[in-house]
Structures are given as C-alpha cells and as structure tokens.
C-alpha cells in the first residue's frame, strides 16, 4: 500500500515537516506501507491551462503520475489569504476529474492564526470531495507557534497525537476500501 504526501508550500519547512510527520506516523503504525513525500519546492509545476498532461514539462508529468500511483494521500498546505496555496490548487488543476476515487485523502494545514481553522473543513475538503476523495473525520491544523523556531520540529505532543490518529484513521479507511468485496 502506497501513501503519498503532498506539501503545497513554496517557502518554509513547516508544511513539509507536517506532511512528513503524517507519513512517518503511518509507517510507524504499519511498516509495510510505502511512503513518498512530494514537496512542491522540489518541482517546477507548470500553470495548468487546460492542455493534455503531455503538453507540460517533465516535473508536471512526474508529479501527476506519482499522485495517481498512490493508494491514498495526505495533502498539506500553509494558509494563504484564508485559503490553500495557489501552488497546490494549480497541481489539483492538472488532475483528472475522479483522481481520488477509492482513495483516502487526509489534510493538514499550518497557519499563523487559529482564525483559519475551518479552511480545511470548508475549502480544501470540498476540493478533495470534488475529486471523489474520501476525507477522514480527523484533520490536523498546526499553528506556526507549535514548531520549534530553530529546527521546525513539532513541539506540541497533542499535535503529534492528532497526527498519529489521522494516520491511523487513514490506514483503517484505506484498508476498508481495498479489502471490500
């Protein structure tokens, strides 16, 4: 079973750390799970303009293929303008309509203020639903203050527990989908 994490930040380490933590937690629960982190800082994704995927550069092609190869996924975004990043939305724009059918799609966000807590629930979640992703009941919102300012490690144990619970729920749900008759 392959779990792919996507970090939608183009600057800073926090979102990447957050997504990476979900991947690590999943691996800890079930060591057989194959994991991969797609950090959008490492790829040059072209702007989606309605062309067939082959018309774009190699990075765009590779990232879309990696996403399609996943059994289930976790998406992370910093909160920009009370919303997900344009970089992540642009990546979604490259995907086919039912990209996440029969796939669990988890969500994590990093933000400066708890005022943006509902962005996952109302905004990113509705986009994942459009792609037919199954959204776990748990999601994780991490305040920037919960990261160590030097190392960008997550310092709050309660957050780590929420991440563990999210990973656990995602694995259970995905096993349910894959093992149904």
């Amino acid at each position: 079973m392959k779990l792919v994490g996507v970090s939608g930040a183009l600057a800073g380490d926090k979102t990447s750390v957050a997504v990476g933590s979900v991947l690590a937690a999943a691996r800890h629960i079930d060591p057989r799970i194959e994991i991969e982190l797609i950090d959008l800082r490492d790829y040059e994704i072209e702007f989606a303009a309605g062309l067939p995927l082959a018309a774009y550069n190699e990075d765009t092609w590779n990232v879309v293929k990696k996403i399609q190869s996943a059994d289930f996924l976790v998406f992370g975004t910093p909160i920009y303008q009370a919303s997900l990043t344009g970089a992540l939305k642009n990546l979604f724009d490259h995907l086919p309509e039912h990209a996440f059918r029969n796939k669990v799609t988890g969500m994590v966000a990093t933000g400066l203020t708890e005022k943006h807590f509902l962005v996952l629930e109302y905004h990113l979640g509705s986009i994942l639903s459009y792609f037919k992703g199954l959204i776990p009941t748990d999601n994780v919102f991490i305040l920037n203050d919960n990261f160590d300012p030097e190392t960008d490690e997550i310092m709050d144990k309660r957050i780590m527990e929420r991440i563990r619970k999210l990973a656990e729920e995602m694995i259970q749900l995905q096993n349910g989908i894959l093992n149904r008759d």
Binding site: A82, V119, Y122
Partner: peptide
C-alpha cells in the same frame, strides 16, 4: 467560544 470558528461567518 473560540477563534477557530471565525470562518463560519464566511462559509
């Protein structure tokens, strides 16, 4: 009760 639901206004 908390700032976490501020966006209920928007959504």
């Amino acid at each position: 009760g908390s700032m976490s639901h501020l966006l209920a206004l928007e959504y």
